[in-house]
Write a protein that binds this DNA or RNA. Structure first.
Lengths: 187, 187
DNA sequence: TGTACATCAGTGAACGCGCGTTCACTGATGTAC
DNA sequence: TGTACATCAGTGAACGCGCGTTCACTGATGTAC
């Protein structure tokens, strides 16, 4: 069954959306193409009409997801300060919904083992995110703002990862709260 | 070919060692039992004489690896201060050898998707590690030392994960250096 | 201490399953006249 | 505008492969006498 060109483009978009969500939720190796296609309302056979490989899908889906979450997190609310951004990131809501959250936190330790194109998408996404954080920071020099931004990003990502890994709800909350307290201080 | 009871115990140990290294290097889903057993000098068929499942192996191997790396990192050099510990963690050497490094950094974002026993081993390992860091910190109260310890651990883990994910060597170095500078300050 | 036998750690073939990928086919779309 | 046909997005069966797990077997170990 052929489909309108616009419909085909919309389908491709749905595949990217579903992939971005399901990769974050289950990991790159924890979800199959058939399930991703099904979540997009299609069957798996049509996949290779849109993408060359699972890795290519991963790279493109990551690029989209990185842009989208940076926009909704920081760039979407201009004028907000660091504390707002930090507290918006370190919420129980974010912790419980990796599929719609930060890609670095959801897939961070898997990225080092991914092919070149996926790692590249991450690198550029991280660059932009750190740049955006640096703009929220006070601090005497651009170099010190950037240093702070890098460390803060590392702290947020690490805190979210640890809070999700832990099997004790109280400990998990403590991690989010401690990190929020420390990383929202601009000293 | 039966084997001495001591030999069998030593073989089990070798499997745990190999598993700890290979899981950290390739991820829980990136390495198979056959390869782990081969790395331990055995064939895959004997696996279920030692462990009930791959998940059980993972849980036990993580427990061992967590204890070992905490000892060699912090508890092994008593009297060291925070800056020493932070700088020892954030090295290019550690970055390039995940198989022998920090389990949280190597597998952090995968742990949330692991079964109960693996997550539990991580939780207890993290608890001990944070406790050990808190002891290195100055600070007015135990609560504030603990808060700092949690945030510092998050920062170290996040920085290592991001520095490994990035495909640009210079950017990767910058992440380690910025985090080292910020997290070794005890303010 | 020596012998006979039961035990059991380790072997390697086999299993069933899910995965990424391929392919012949379908039938609506888009185009040429 | 209407008709005829080529195109091609999507379908579903099939492929080969690697994985976790099982199992019948082997032969050295450990034990009973």
């Amino acid at each position: 069954m052929k489909v309108t060109r616009e419909q085909a483009a919309a389908n491709r978009e749905k595949v990217l959306q579903a992939a971005g969500r399901l990769f974050r939720k289950h990991g790159f190796e924890g979800i199959g193409l058939a399930d991703i296609m099904k979540a997009a309302g299609l069957t798996h056979g049509g996949f290779y009409g849109h993408f060359d490989s699972k890795h290519d899908l991963a790279a493109e889906a990551c690029e989209r997801a990185l842009d989208a979450s940076r926009k909704s997190w920081i760039e979407g609310s201009p004028g907000a300060d660091l504390e707002t951004a930090v507290r918006k990131y370190l919420t129980p809501r974010h912790r419980s919904d990796p599929g719609r959250g930060c890609l670095f936190a959801a897939l961070g330790s898997e990225v080092a083992r991914q092919p070149r194109n996926v790692r590249h998408a991450f690198t550029e996404g991280l660059r932009s995110t750190i740049h955006a954080i640096a703009e929220l920071l006070p601090g005497p020099s651009a170099a010190s703002r950037r240093e702070q931004a890098v460390a803060t990003m590392a702290g947020l990502v690490g805190a979210m990862i640890l809070s999700r890994a832990v099997d004790d709800a109280q400990f998990s909350d403590e991690i989010l709260e401690a990190a929020a307290a420390v990383f929202s201080r601009t000293n």
